[in-house]
């Protein structure tokens, strides 16, 4: 069973397709990073997943429940916050949680449990309007955790947080699959953040899901090396003539892309070719592939060839 499964999910606004034939496959018990630039369709997709918007086409299954036909049953498995922490500022943090607890018919002790998880026990009696943004985000996360949902949908949870807040939220999210025994689906445009916390990732562009896979698979495939050399253009041309994937980044830097597992061998060969051709190689710096590389490679080529089930 998948935590989230969509088929042909499509949403249009005024004739413009903002979510286009999206097929999400989100496994259970993982952190799934949902990436894409602003306006790519991430938030609209999340709103569709929560039933806040009605899809023009396609199906959504949350933890095995069809959202269209078993809405309440499906949403009972889900905790979420979308776009920003939606809190009633005139109520205390505790009262904010208590309103949701009552609506979900949960025991009183549930509030203490989620406050403990997000580290907000001491601040819960203050009015939510007095909280910092980081505290609001944590309280919203606590509210999403009420009822121990099997699936958490978090939209840009680190938005507006300072570095400490980002780190705290990152640690919190990373630990959640273990704590709740379920899946955390995190949308973000911060690739570095997602790389730190996610096991799986999907990338959106122009409403389409252009890539979806395990993060380790996305980061595999190739690595790059930056070589500092006296004449980068000529050196890169020489390497390309020897069937190597090289490009001059500036006058003195060549980027050499190597196949996965062949980094050392191909770097050594490139160095030998350049030295034998009387180029002066002064530095070789390997560069581990990041989600940012994957993102740019994928979104610039942007074909659905990358798409494969996670």
């Amino acid at each position: 069973m998948l935590a989230i499964e969509t088929e042909h999910l499509t949403k249009r606004y005024s004739g413009r397709t903002v979510v286009d034939d999206v097929a999400l496959r989100v496994p259970m018990r993982c952190v799934y990073g949902f990436l894409g630039p602003n306006g790519a369709g991430k938030t609209t997709t999340m709103r569709l997943l929560l039933g806040l918007l009605r899809a023009d086409a396609g199906t959504i299954r949350l933890v095995g429940r069809d959202l269209a036909h078993r809405r309440r049953d499906a949403l009972a498995q889900v905790g979420a916050f979308v776009e920003s922490a939606s809190l009633y500022d005139h109520l205390t943090g505790y009262a904010n949680l208590d309103t949701t607890r009552r609506l979900l018919n949960l025991p009183q002790g549930e509030i203490d449990r989620v406050l403990e998880i997000v580290g907000m026990r001491d601040a819960a009696r203050a009015r939510a309007g007095t909280y910092s943004l980081g505290m609001k985000q944590r309280l919203a996360l606590a509210r999403a955790l009420l009822g121990a949902p099997k699936l958490l949908l978090l939209d840009e949870p680190t938005n507006g947080l300072d570095p400490d807040g980002i780190r705290a939220m990152r640690l919190l999210i990373r630990a959640l699959p273990e704590q709740i025994g379920g899946t955390v689906f995190v949308s973000s445009h911060l690739l570095n953040e997602v790389e730190h916390i996610a096991d799986h990732a999907g990338m959106m562009r122009d409403g389409r899901l252009v890539v979806q896979d395990e993060v380790r698979m996305l980061l595999g495939g190739s690595a790059t090396v930056a070589m500092t050399i006296n004449e980068a253009e000529a050196g890169a041309a020489l390497l390309r003539a020897r069937s190597m994937d090289a490009a001059a980044l500036d006058d003195q830097t060549i980027r050499l892309r190597c196949q996965d597992g062949a980094l050392i061998q191909q770097t050594a060969m490139a160095n030998r070719i350049l030295v034998e051709a009387d180029f002066m190689v002064s530095a070789i710096v390997p560069h581990a592939r990041t989600l940012e590389d994957v993102y740019h490679d994928t979104l610039t080529s942007a074909t659905s060839d990358y798409r494969r089930p996670a």
Binding site: R47, L50, G51, L52, R71, R72, D73, A74, L75, A76, V78, A80, F81, V82, E83, S84, S86, L87, Y88, D89, T100, L103, L104, R143
Partner: peptide, 18 residues
């Protein structure tokens, strides 16, 4: 405005309540 200012609809309508 209690709901709109707090973006409460996003929260309320995503709950398993009719």
């Amino acid at each position: 405005q209690i709901e709109y200012r707090a973006r409460g609809w996003d929260h309320l309508l995503a709950l398993p309540i009719a």
